[in-house]
Amino acid sequence: MKNKFKTASVITLILSISIIAVWVVQTMIAYQNYIKHPELSAPFWAYQIPEVTAYGIPVIVGLILTVMFKRKGK
C-alpha cells in the first residue's frame, strides 16, 4: 500500500505544478492583452479574480492531497 500512496503523492504534485505552469502562461498572455488595450479601466488584478478561483482552488486541493498521500505512504 505504501507504493500506491507514494505514487499518488507524486502524481498529485506533478498535476499541481502543471496547473501552476498553465496559470503562469495564461496570466502572461492576459497581461499582454491588458497592456494592448489601454481603455480597460479596472486594474489588472480585478480581471484575474476568476482565474484565481479557477486555478487556485485545484492547486490548493492538489497540494493538500499530496501532503496527505505522502503522510500515509510513510
Rank of each mutant, 00 (worst) to 15 (best):
residue 32 Q to P: 01
residue 30 A to F: 06
residue 12 T to W: 09
residue 35 I to G: 03
residue 55 Y to G: 01
residue 46 A to R: 11
residue 17 I to P: 00
residue 30 A to Y: 04
residue 47 Y to F: 11
residue 22 V to L: 13
residue 56 G to V: 04
residue 14 I to L: 14
residue 59 V to W: 04
residue 69 F to E: 01
residue 44 F to Q: 01
residue 12 T to N: 07
residue 68 M to Q: 08
residue 40 L to Y: 14
residue 57 I to T: 05
residue 45 W to H: 08
residue 66 T to E: 04
residue 20 I to F: 14
residue 61 V to N: 01
residue 35 I to N: 06
residue 48 Q to G: 00
residue 43 P to A: 09
residue 20 I to H: 01
residue 44 F to Y: 14
residue 56 G to I: 05
residue 7 T to G: 06
residue 3 N to E: 12
residue 9 S to E: 13
residue 56 G to T: 05
residue 19 I to S: 05
residue 54 A to M: 14
residue 21 A to G: 05
residue 13 L to A: 13
residue 28 M to R: 10
residue 23 W to Q: 11
residue 30 A to C: 02
residue 14 I to N: 01
residue 43 P to D: 12
residue 68 M to F: 13
residue 24 V to I: 15
residue 60 I to P: 00
residue 46 A to Q: 14
residue 20 I to M: 12
residue 7 T to S: 14
residue 47 Y to P: 00
residue 49 I to F: 10
residue 48 Q to K: 08
residue 29 I to V: 14
residue 73 G to N: 03
residue 21 A to Y: 10
residue 67 V to N: 01
residue 37 H to E: 14
residue 44 F to C: 01
residue 50 P to Q: 08
residue 3 N to W: 12
residue 19 I to F: 12
residue 18 S to Y: 10
residue 49 I to M: 11
residue 32 Q to I: 05
residue 12 T to C: 11
residue 58 P to Y: 08
residue 34 Y to C: 01
residue 29 I to L: 12
residue 69 F to T: 00
